[in-house]
Simulated assay, not measured.
Amino acid sequence: MRKLMFYVPLVLFLTLALFLLSGLFSNPMERESVTTNKPLPAFSLPDLMQPAQRWQPEQLRGETFLLNVWGTWCPTCNAELSYMTELKQQGVKIIGLYYVLPVDPLLGESFDLTMLQADVSNKLQQRGNPYQFNILDADRSLSLDLGVSGAPETFIVDSNGIVREHHIGDINPQVWRNKLAPLYQKWRQQDGSQ
């Protein structure tokens, strides 16, 4: 019985230590996505700049594109805008999913669409506008359904509306060249064969 009292805590300690040690050497940018190889979740969300226009997954089909989750409040998002604008000029289709920070009415905060539109317009004029259009995810429902943990995050969506890749972090020349461009080109080539 004494040996058992000694070994049980030791085994529990070693198990916990191995679990924590594995986390030390894992890359948080390479976590498994819940949406990869699944259709875009169902949604009906307004266009950020033209709220009367609503977007649904069916309207986005037909061509492979990048769905970029971003916000003007996000410094990394702002840094990637100019490079993504270059990608747009090279023919890469990019759709923005604007990730709205939560507002707290108890603190006197309220969502102001007009102010947000002006802020987005100013930011895109300063840094470049890589987007075909921006979907407004005011309550972050689509972001949550996609498994977004913050911004920026980018999804490669094929012409059938299937999410093929989920990248956490910014898009820069190295990430594009080494990770995203080969996958994007693969799915673009398949667009032509359909």
Rank of each mutant, 00 (worst) to 15 (best):
P152N: 02
G62Y: 11
V175C: 12
G91P: 14
P130W: 02
G192R: 04
G150P: 12
M49Y: 02
D145L: 14
Q190D: 02
P173W: 04
G62W: 05
L40N: 08
I94Q: 01
C77N: 11
E109D: 01
Q117H: 07
D170M: 06
E63Y: 05
R2M: 13
V92K: 12
Q189S: 00
F25R: 01
D112I: 10
N27L: 15
D158H: 03
H167Y: 05
Q89M: 01
V120T: 00
N68H: 06
N68E: 04
N78Q: 08
K179S: 07
Q125S: 14
D112K: 04
P46Q: 05
G71Y: 08
L16T: 02
Q56D: 04
L67V: 08
T72R: 01
V34K: 15
N134W: 15
Q53F: 13
P173T: 09
C74H: 09
Y7H: 03
N27H: 10
L48C: 06
N129P: 01
L24T: 13
V103R: 11
K38H: 14
L18E: 05
V69A: 07
D104Y: 12
L40Y: 14
V69W: 06
L40Q: 10
N178A: 05
L116D: 00
V69L: 10
Y83W: 01
S149A: 13
V8I: 15
Q50E: 13
K186M: 09
R54F: 11
L113I: 14
A52G: 13
D119F: 05
P173G: 00
E32D: 14
Y7D: 13
S159L: 05
R140F: 01
A118M: 02
S121G: 11
Y131T: 06
P102W: 06
V148L: 11
M84R: 03
L144N: 13
F111E: 03
Y98I: 09
R164L: 13
L66F: 15
R2C: 01
N129Y: 00
P152Y: 00
R140D: 15
F111M: 11
V163W: 06
H166F: 14
Q90F: 08
Q190L: 06
D139K: 01
K186Y: 10
P9M: 03
Y131C: 15
T36W: 13
S33R: 06
D47Y: 03
G23A: 12
F65C: 09
Q126T: 11
Y7I: 03
L136Y: 15
R61Q: 14
S193V: 06
D170W: 14
L146Y: 14
A181C: 00
L60E: 04
K93Y: 13
S44C: 08
Q59N: 02
